[in-house]
Design a protein around this nucleic acid. Sequence first.
DNA 1: AATTATTTGTGCGTATGTATC
DNA 2: AGATACATACGCACAAATAAT
Lengths: 356, 356
Amino acid sequence: MLPKYMVLVNWIRDRIKNQEFKYGEKLASEKELGQMFSVSRQTVRQAINVLVQDGLLESRQGSGTYVTRRIAGKHSPKMVVGVISTYVNDYIFSGILRGMENVLTENGYSMQLAFTHNHIESEKNALANMLTRGVDGLIVEPAKSGLPSPNIDLYQEALQEGTPILFFNTYYSSLALPHVALDDAAAGLAATEYLIRAGHRRIAGIFKLDDYQGRLRYAGYVRALINAGIALDDNLVLWYSTEDFADGFSTGKMRQRLSSATAIFCYNDQIALKAVSALREAGKRVPEDVSVISVENSDLAKLCEVPLTSVAHPMEELGITAAQNLLHLIQDPSFKATVNFPPHIVERSSVCPLHD
Amino acid sequence: MLPKYMVLVNWIRDRIKNQEFKYGEKLASEKELGQMFSVSRQTVRQAINVLVQDGLLESRQGSGTYVTRRIAGKHSPKMVVGVISTYVNDYIFSGILRGMENVLTENGYSMQLAFTHNHIESEKNALANMLTRGVDGLIVEPAKSGLPSPNIDLYQEALQEGTPILFFNTYYSSLALPHVALDDAAAGLAATEYLIRAGHRRIAGIFKLDDYQGRLRYAGYVRALINAGIALDDNLVLWYSTEDFADGFSTGKMRQRLSSATAIFCYNDQIALKAVSALREAGKRVPEDVSVISVENSDLAKLCEVPLTSVAHPMEELGITAAQNLLHLIQDPSFKATVNFPPHIVERSSVCPLHD
DNA sequence: AATTATTTGTGCGTATGTATC
DNA sequence: AGATACATACGCACAAATAAT
């Protein structure tokens, strides 16, 4: 049997959640509430006290009891932004982090950081932790964005509590939340068109299947082929997952499936380097026999033996934009924060024109 | 006029502060307290309620009211560790971060991160922020560790509040706080001895002056020379600061000062590469004319034109150890957390034996 | 500018319920 | 089973702050 004061607590809390009692609004007086619920004034006070401790209500002697104003009110801003990313060691992430950190500290915010290693369970823990602890906003690179997410309820909960969320690098297509990312479809399109312009027609593609970026880059790749009137050959398309790569991706499969291609579009620099070694094992030279293009433009791409032509990732700029837009969102929840960065190809020496 | 219940609140709070009421101890019953202070039981309850909300007391129905048992400090554990580092983009830091993050999340902690860019003022802000917000412990790479720090009072404040502090990479020699770092003196010693064993005697050194690591590596360098009976030539020693490097360190000075050296010990890979280009501009070859050894063993050292022989930095291991030891310190403030990692030279091709 | 009604804050007395020892 | 302690609940009175008249 729920105590009377708890019944009242729940009644008020529900009404605040449903926006029926809006921020800043004045509650009925203690006497009135007591009459409404046929309880004593002391009981009403006990209920109100719980919600004051919770930070949902604020009592002003002689005036009344008010629903706490979220913006510019007493509901103290924590000045902390939660950042959840997939990988620490990722080359791209250190650039993004640099950008975010500059913007956040300049604006007096500090950053709470967690990594998911692209595991759903870690993401769940990180989200729960941030929500419990309380952050003013979340910047998240979702885990396994290419697959349906079981953490959607946690994201919803955060939104209901008024915590703005901004995705970066990738996003869940099923959630209508803002994101800041490289335009991955355009990147796939541009890279594939680049190969087509160099005369290639048998163009293979290697894509990551559990990240939504992979799907989008694949979509761009397919569109480029269709636009050029080239039939899509499923044998030339290879999908891999986070776990595949960790297990030591077998290059045997690569050699076999890609043997007839004259060019390969690779999901990122890391997999591109794997592809290059696989090709070398098969006795093929890059770029003379097979051209390779990738996405990321990391140090790896610059410094490896055959410097890779690659679609640049706007790391630092992306981090800056993400942080700025989240801060906007904190001020104004209706702010349109989505940004897609157009791709930009950095030419090096891993692609050459096809000559038969 | 203070309300009666507040008088009681203060009375109890004082007694807890003075250890007169100890952790876990049972308080007098509400009725008794009421009689003692000649107030009603309701008033006593109101006072107790304030302290329960404060986390100082805990009421158990049917049993009594108890002083909250707490772990070595004023506040309940937040399960958050603050990490303050100098640079985001630093190659070493991403490895350290990876190690720390793994340990912290495995133990249910989250990480609040801030960067100082090696500026004292940023460090001050970061520290103040962490202390205000409340963290269970701090892992700090101090800024300008080679110079006297004006932030010492903030560190003291944190310690007084019972927040353990662990330094990493470097430390303030004036503060008796634990640290986890590469043994920089031993690194300087080992690297210089390596050059001496290769027959070099005119060995220059380039050191960073505002980081304590620079001083220690210099100390190791000097010791190696003395041990080998080589007189220290001040003309062969070059000092630079964070700001010098940011301004675009002039290679002219380097060329001039180092012209007579046959080998150079460099503070890190970054400055070593600067030195290599300076030598090249002066028409000297590395390693044929001048040998170069550095500290860091970054990707840069591996991938640059003349791969650098370098003292390896135990990045990930250091991060793991730092996080583990901080967690130990949180449990047991008397834990000896200091670790100095022995240096370990990775041989590449930037050093060759002296032949006249 | 002073008054008054309203609203919350403080404080007490009492009664009953329920968990613990 | 009984004594004790906290939990819930009601009623009343007055103080202090606020807002409207």
